[in-house]
Amino acid sequence: MPNYVMFIDQDKCTGCNACRIACQTQWGLPPEMNYNFLIEQERGKYPNVERLIIPMQCQHCDNPPCLTVCPTGATYKRDDGIVLVDPKKCIGCKYCMIACPYNVRIINEQGVPEKCRFCAEYVTNGETPACVSTCMNDVRVFGDLDDPNSPLHDLLKEHELMQMREDLKTRPRIYYAQSKRG
């Protein structure tokens, strides 16, 4: 069973937003609904300026708070670690949106708080998630942590890593390279 994780080198992102719309078309989402987005922040004082850009999406936590609170088990975790929502069971209480520390869920037209699916159906077929493949700067790398040939191993070793809200012990499957910017 694969052990899917994603590596995001945030300092390589230049904010083109291709990941957002590639995902939208991949999943047939309407324009106002997106599973990933960029947090941007300007730092510093002219002329010493830096721009922080953080690609955000569902972190596919190994200990997902959204799964813990889902009353009907609509949110579930696959054996390969991908956290998904079963729309059949979702009552639309939005408790997952309350519990998620990452603000990455968005209510779809069926009233289901959907989110990044790690392109589950596609990666199972050996494809790459849409946000990964469209990115010109190769900001994201997706792969199987248990696959010894995956480039992920080197990347995770080479970089100083950080995860979102480690204090909450959600154990995300997305590893960010620690930003070298202010």
Partner: peptide
């Protein structure tokens, strides 16, 4: 308020006791 109140039946079919 619930998007899909008719699915409340899943509260009984597949309850999540941690919620």
């Amino acid at each position: 308020e619930l998007s899909n109140p008719f699915k409340l039946v899943y509260l009984l079919i597949t309850p999540n006791f941690t919620s």
